[in-house]
């Protein structure tokens, strides 16, 4: 493991890893895809090459000079150990500055939390929706090391197959999943909506999950499940 001099043990010395600083450390690796439009071809992931990689690299280079150091002169490359509060448990994990929460959950936890799905890696699809301090967030657009001290809830934290949440129960009852790959994201997004207001209207529910894509076309059943769960929650059922 490379020695990350930005290593921070515990929350005593929070490091502000803003996107700009992050870009320096990461060399625009992941964020190049987010910032550079697809027109330039530098999509998130490993397909950028040749002409297209050049365009992506130019974008990040412009933002990233001088590379490799934050204003305090600390190196922001390599790996650091951080502690995250995930589903009510504090967990230590080793990440790079550029590691997204999505990749941290899926590839750097032991055992990994794979309920949060990786579909687009650029905030287009909602499949990686998690709650950060109760608010729905795309895990692919969050840096893991930015989230120290925040309460992260993944779909696994909402219920287990043996003890489903009310919304999860209604997803099953109303056939709210087909292939199921988008389902965790919908469940988390609508959970946040119903936590705000269990009496949310269908239109409000639609808005709450308008950022979630489903290819099988489960939407009508998802709306039905959300409305049914909202009714039960409003009546105080569990």
């Amino acid at each position: 493991m490379a020695d990350g001099t930005a290593r921070t043990d515990g929350a005593a010395e929070p490091v502000d890893l803003s996107r700009r600083v992050f870009l320096r450390g990461a060399g625009g690796a992941a964020a190049g895809g987010v910032l550079a439009p697809a027109l330039l071809g530098a999509a998130a992931g490993g397909c950028a090459a040749g002409a297209t990689a050049g365009a992506g690299a130019a974008t990040s280079a412009a933002l990233a000079a001088p590379p490799g150091a934050d204003p305090a002169g600390r190196e922001l490359v390599g790996e650091v150990e951080i502690e995250l509060a995930i589903n009510g448990t504090r967990q230590k994990l080793v990440v790079e500055p550029r590691t997204t929460l999505l990749d941290a959950l899926r590839t750097r936890l032991e055992p990994p939390l794979t309920g949060t799905k990786s579909v687009c890696e650029r905030g287009n699809c909602g499949a990686c929706t998690v709650l950060v301090d109760g608010e729905p967030r795309y895990a692919c657009l969050q840096l893991a090391c930015d989230l120290r001290g925040r309460a992260i809830t993944t779909v696994e934290g909402l219920g287990s197959p043996e003890k489903l949440s009310v919304l999860q129960q209604e997803f099953v009852a109303q056939d709210g999943s087909m292939c199921g790959f988008c389902t965790p994201g919908f469940v988390v997004a609508i959970t946040a909506c119903l936590q705000r207001d269990p009496r949310a209207s269908e239109q409000e529910i639609r808005r709450a999950c308008a950022g979630n894509l489903c290819r099988c076309g489960t939407h009508p059943q998802v709306f039905a499940a959300a409305l049914a769960a909202g009714r039960r929650l409003a009546e105080g059922q569990r």
Partner: peptide, 26 residues
């Protein structure tokens, strides 16, 4: 209701993306 509904809605269903085996490379 689907018999695999509970694992799908709770994130427990294991897809190929989610398979992790010891010593695996990416």
């Amino acid at each position: 209701p689907r018999v695999d509904g509970p694992v799908k809605v709770s994130g427990a269903a294991r897809y190929t993306h989610d398979v992790r085996v010891p010593g695996m490379v990416w």
